[in-house]
């Protein structure tokens, strides 16, 4: 039995996960909590957010996120892929910034519109 705090939403439910019973979750307020509890003990994942350089834009950085959650163990490796990225303005929300991160089938996408500098 492992106790976890659910991170799916700001409520932060206190979960109990029973490894003996196929990771059965109790204490969850919603189905997403049950899914999180099992995943956290079998294959924990996170959505990663960061920023990348922008040239010719109204601001110098564009914010980005992984289009889906990636394994926790790959976080720092994924972050390094952003170090050498430079986008040209305009940047549009949803633009793919890095395609297929580490072969995971997940992209880094822009989360902000950056218009050209005027």
């Amino acid at each position: 039995m492992t106790e976890l705090i659910c991170i799916v939403c700001p409520k932060g439910c206190h979960l109990k996960v029973d490894e003996e019973k196929d990771f059965a979750v109790t204490g969850n307020g919603c189905p997403r909590g049950a899914e999180y509890g099992k995943k956290e003990l079998t294959n924990p994942t996170r959505v990663i957010t960061s920023t990348v350089r922008v040239e010719g834009g109204a601001i110098r950085r564009a914010s980005v996120k992984t289009s889906s959650d990636i394994p926790k163990g790959k976080i720092f490796e994924a972050m390094r892929l952003l170090d050498n990225v430079t986008l040209q303005a305009p940047v549009h929300m949803g633009d793919i910034v890095v395609h297929d991160i580490l072969g995971l089938g997940v992209d880094f996408v822009a989360t902000k519109n950056v218009p050209p500098r005027t």
Partner: peptide
Amino acid sequence: ELGGILNQCIHNGFGLHYFKEELTGPEYAG
């Protein structure tokens, strides 16, 4: 630009109540 403090809150977790999905700050403002 519009958006206030959300522009620098690039992490996700915004909008679960209002939009029923998880957005970053710039996306929520957007």
